[in-house]
Amino acid sequence: MAEQMHFKLLSGDVIPMVGFGTWTVTGSSVTPIIDHALAAGYRLFDTATMYGNEAELGRAFKELLPKHNLERKDIFIATKLYPDDHGENAAKAINESLKLLDCEYIDLYLIHWPGVYGVSPKSPENARLRDISWQKMTEAVKKGLVKNIGVSNYNVKQLKQLLQNDHGIKPVVNQVERHPHCRQKEILELCNKEEICLQAYMPLGGTGNKDLLENAKVKKIADKLGKRPAQVLLRWNLQQNVAVIPKSSSKEHIFNNFDLNFILPDEDMEVLNTFPQTKYDWDPDSIA
């Protein structure tokens, strides 16, 4: 089993630097995929209300943790607020996630998106409602329902706005799209300054997108080091102290994506840092 790396959060808790993403992991595939992930060594599992798989994951953990000689406290479960549930509904949404996951607490609860579905992207109502969401999340921490709170898809402006009015609890994580085609230098610098864990989703470029995995420069580095392109891309983030949450349904890829105990030489990091920039997913710059 590969060595597990951790990031110490502002709360004092530690979060694994390599987690397992569960977007599109649904139905009868959930239990065997989570079984492989636990066997490979993953202990952080990332889901969201939007993914529609919280109940299936809850059932899988109940079945599989004893098989792997683990208890609930040995894994770190992260889930997220649906953009429909901003504002007063956030408290109810947290309770619903707890019920579906069938556990007493959530390790990390994130605002999934700074915007509110049904509200114009440029409306100040977005900022007002996400502020209420954050208040409800801080209350959930005080009640012991959630251990840590953070955000996802926040840009520099939105994160600074939250830090100026955090209702007593700073965000411990900001989960954003990040890979060599989307380096997000400014948000990385801000998170480093504020001791917030920057966590990369789509670290391989996203489902079905082979732009990075089949990139000639990535493949050349991988061949030189005797690694897979995916391992090179994940290691690129880790060497910048950025956590990663790759996802896969293939047992071989699940194990390979966790086996990251090697170093990318400086010259290879520099090559990856010169890639042209493009965003494949949500762009929070559209939200006021």
Results as ranks from 00 to 15, higher is better:
residue 109 Y to L: 04
residue 88 E to V: 14
residue 276 P to H: 04
residue 40 A to S: 13
residue 241 N to G: 00
residue 247 K to F: 00
residue 236 W to A: 03
residue 61 F to P: 09
residue 29 S to T: 14
residue 84 D to F: 11
residue 25 V to M: 13
residue 104 E to M: 06
residue 280 Y to D: 06
residue 155 N to E: 03
residue 265 P to C: 03
residue 173 V to F: 08
residue 158 Q to M: 08
residue 102 D to N: 12
residue 193 K to D: 03
residue 229 P to S: 01
residue 245 I to Y: 11
residue 219 K to A: 01
residue 270 E to V: 03
residue 185 K to I: 11
residue 157 K to Y: 14
residue 4 Q to I: 13
residue 163 L to I: 07
residue 205 G to D: 02
residue 245 I to V: 15
residue 269 M to I: 11
residue 267 E to F: 00
residue 17 M to D: 09
residue 82 Y to D: 15
residue 22 T to H: 05
residue 46 D to L: 11
residue 244 V to M: 07
residue 149 I to L: 03
residue 209 N to Q: 09
residue 193 K to C: 01
residue 244 V to L: 06
residue 184 Q to S: 04
residue 83 P to I: 13
residue 190 L to E: 03
residue 84 D to R: 12
residue 85 D to W: 10
residue 182 C to A: 08
residue 225 L to C: 08
residue 2 A to R: 12
residue 210 K to V: 09
residue 66 P to C: 08
residue 83 P to M: 14
residue 131 D to A: 12
residue 165 N to G: 12
residue 40 A to H: 09
residue 106 I to Y: 05
residue 134 W to T: 11
residue 68 H to T: 11
residue 49 T to F: 01
residue 13 D to Q: 13
residue 6 H to R: 14
residue 39 A to I: 11
residue 208 G to T: 06
residue 1 M to P: 15
residue 73 K to P: 13
residue 252 E to M: 09
residue 76 F to W: 09
residue 206 G to M: 08
residue 245 I to K: 09
residue 12 G to Q: 02
residue 210 K to C: 01
residue 130 R to L: 01
residue 284 P to S: 06
residue 259 D to I: 06
residue 262 F to Y: 08
residue 175 Q to R: 05
residue 219 K to W: 01
residue 189 E to K: 12
residue 242 V to E: 07
residue 99 K to C: 13
residue 199 Q to F: 11
residue 37 A to D: 05
residue 76 F to N: 02
residue 33 I to W: 00
residue 82 Y to R: 13
residue 54 E to D: 08
residue 131 D to F: 00
residue 45 F to G: 09
residue 28 S to A: 14
residue 55 A to Q: 15
residue 137 M to S: 04
residue 31 T to W: 00
residue 196 I to Y: 03
residue 103 C to R: 13
residue 271 V to K: 01
residue 218 V to S: 00
residue 104 E to G: 12
residue 147 K to W: 00
residue 278 T to M: 12
residue 236 W to C: 03
residue 190 L to I: 08
residue 288 A to Q: 12
residue 55 A to D: 15
residue 117 Y to T: 15
residue 190 L to M: 08
residue 252 E to C: 03
residue 279 K to Y: 12
residue 175 Q to N: 07
residue 129 L to R: 12
residue 227 K to T: 06
residue 198 L to F: 05
residue 81 L to M: 10
residue 10 L to W: 07
residue 243 A to W: 02
residue 19 G to D: 01
residue 80 K to H: 06
residue 212 L to S: 02
residue 264 L to Q: 04
residue 207 T to G: 03
